[in-house]
Design a protein around this nucleic acid. Structure first.
Lengths: 345, 345
DNA sequence: TTTAGCACTCGTTAGCTATGAGTGCTAACT
DNA sequence: AGTTAGCACTCATAGCTAACGAGTGCTAAA
């Protein structure tokens, strides 16, 4: 059985109608939605073929047809006409998102909000990953006799700080030693290389100052660790309730999202144009077998760095939402790149 | 109609049985759960009275009785025997919570997790409010030619930082001016008083340096604003799904929680022992009319400062959970007080 | 005041039927 | 050979009825 142009048109019409209404679509309904005239019987024959080919299925014998994962896949890869984001909208989106400009976390949170509102789905975003990032700067700010704030700035623009209590009073020498060790061992070093091993050899080499200084470097290493793990932000989870076909699995999905770790994995795959669409059972988590995930990565200064995603029912309006996601990830990437340049200068 | 000891025993038994099973309780069931022997008919008569008095109700004519809001209230205020938190448990709780020691946000997040796990409810926590807090310290850390990090430490121990780009190159004078102005206008000042008005007069008084310096003070004021608003943390929202009687309203409750603002209000009322229990329709949000809220405030250095709360179905195990919440808020308060002392020193 | 007895209420469940949307198949048509 | 009209068939859904049973309120006796 091979695909014909007419079958393709029928498949596309079924997918689009089902996405629109959520109801299985029957042959008569379809008659009115095709740009050529054939009888319902003909459509029925074609649809039976499409079922056999694996693109459609019937919830039960006497119901209309619903796209399968394979059907959506074929539609998205070969049939779909992406809807351009119109100008008014793109401007208003860009404006909303850029109101979070400044702090990466705030920006991604804002982007997540915008996406959630726009798509009526749950939004997931990851902060710019610091994998290739290194320590740009470290600061030691004495706060009291024995307490200091340690501040870390990475080359990716991430800013982390932490209060840290030492075991001995802080003197001018303490500060000087801190900066000296930083300059020698931390500045310019990739975050990945700052681990317990590196820390131990460092502390060992401090000799008589180990006791005095080590708490601060432990704190600094902690900060590096925090900066390294690309945090996951969630927005609009409640939107999942709006989709009836998900009603049974909302709890499971939320539970999955809650433990952020696997989520970043969710966002990490996929290549073409930094876009990744996973439909229903294509997802590796079975909690998502009734859901689709659209992920678009964003680039900061040309390097892939984080991603924006949505989770919704399989019957997403792909033609509209994929361009949205691409547009927004573009905006986010641009803003982050600009922010970074500001730091360089 | 007046309350009698026997009616009280019956009411308590109904409440406890309903909390345990979730099923309306009938007169025969009750016979086996009372510490005195009377026939089901007698119990029926008494229960009919309790219905008339407003403490019980029937879902429908031929069903057992269920406590009303009033019934729960009477039970909690007069009948309930609080269950002590046993020692093993209290130790393990204290240990889990204190693993978040250090950063207030982390601590409250941890406490929320513990509460959510322990109670199988959604947990809400607020960070220590900074209402009476003032600026303890401000730091200016040059990062690049035109960018600096502004770091704010409050007397409540909150640490906030922000990257900030000025319009002119940063020189040694810039730094000196920053600290001079801070010492004169910010250090020791209550956060509440740092607003746009204060900022405007300040900028005006900067004279020729206004252009150079104002971005940094704007950032500092921003940080003060952030430190002031007592953030709300949510944990274990997914637990709401575990309670069948909430199934219809989970989405509404989550939506309510999402917009953190009214939630802090939720936590703010109530007095006795810093404890506040709101049952069903006692809640001012109608989304919560099927839910109960238990809130316990914590004190930092003797002053009330934030709160921990849970949201669950009305049939909560109050006798167990109220002591839990009081215990945990005590632990949190103690840890925060200790942390603060560390900073003083 | 308590209790046994009994008629009554009403939610729940199971079984039955009618309905209708939608199908597959066959035979006639182009 | 592809297309179409016609028709019997399938099956989820809604509505109806009857049986069931948990639990009640009330009455009359203890």
């Amino acid at each position: 059985m091979e695909m014909t142009p007419r079958k393709e048109k029928i498949l596309a019409a079924v997918v689009e109608s089902y996405i629109r209404t959520g109801e299985p679509v029957g042959s008569k309904t379809l008659m009115g939605e095709l740009d050529f005239q054939v009888s319902s019987a003909t459509i029925r024959n074609e649809m039976a073929d499409l079922v056999e080919m694996g693109y459609l299925e019937q919830p039960h014998t006497s119901a209309g047809r619903v796209p399968t994962t394979l059907g959506y896949r074929y539609y998205i890869d070969k049939l779909m006409n992406k809807l351009e984001v119109n100008k008014d909208e793109s401007e208003s989106i860009a404006k909303s998102v850029s109101s979070g400009r400044g702090d990466p976390e705030q920006l991604l949170e804002k982007a997540g909000e915008v996406i959630a509102r726009l798509t009526n789905c749950a939004a997931i975003t990851t902060l710019p990953t610091g994998e290739q990032a290194c320590v740009r700067r470290a600061e030691f700010v004495p706060v009291s006799n024995r307490t200091a704030m340690i501040v870390l700035l990475t080359s990716a623009g991430t800013l982390k700080s932490k209060a840290c209590r030492g075991d001995m009073p802080i003197t001018q020498q303490t500060v000087e030693r801190f900066y000296a060790v930083c300059a020698a061992h931390f500045i310019g070093k990739p975050l990945e290389e700052i681990g317990t091993v590196m820390l131990q050899t460092l502390v060992a080499s401090l000799g008589e100052f180990a006791l005095e200084m080590s708490p601060y470097f432990v704190a600094l290493a902690d900060l590096a660790g925090e900066a390294l793990k690309s945090d996951v932000l969630l927005e609009g989870q409640a939107n999942l309730f709006n989709h009836r076909e998900l009603s049974g699995s909302v709890a499971d999905i939320m539970e999955l999202l809650r433990k952020g770790e696997p989520v970043s994995k969710l966002l990490s795959g996929g290549e073409k144009d930094g876009l990744n669409v996973k439909i229903g059972t294509e997802n590796e988590y079975k909690q998502l077998s009734n859901s689709s995930v659209i992920v678009s990565r964003y680039n900061v200064n040309g390097a892939r760095s984080g991603a924006l995603g949505i989770i919704g029912p399989t019957r997403l309006n792909y033609a509209k939402l994929i361009p949205y996601m691409q547009f927004i990830s573009g905006v986010v990437g641009k803003i982050l790149s600009e922010t970074l340049e500001t730091l360089e200068d």
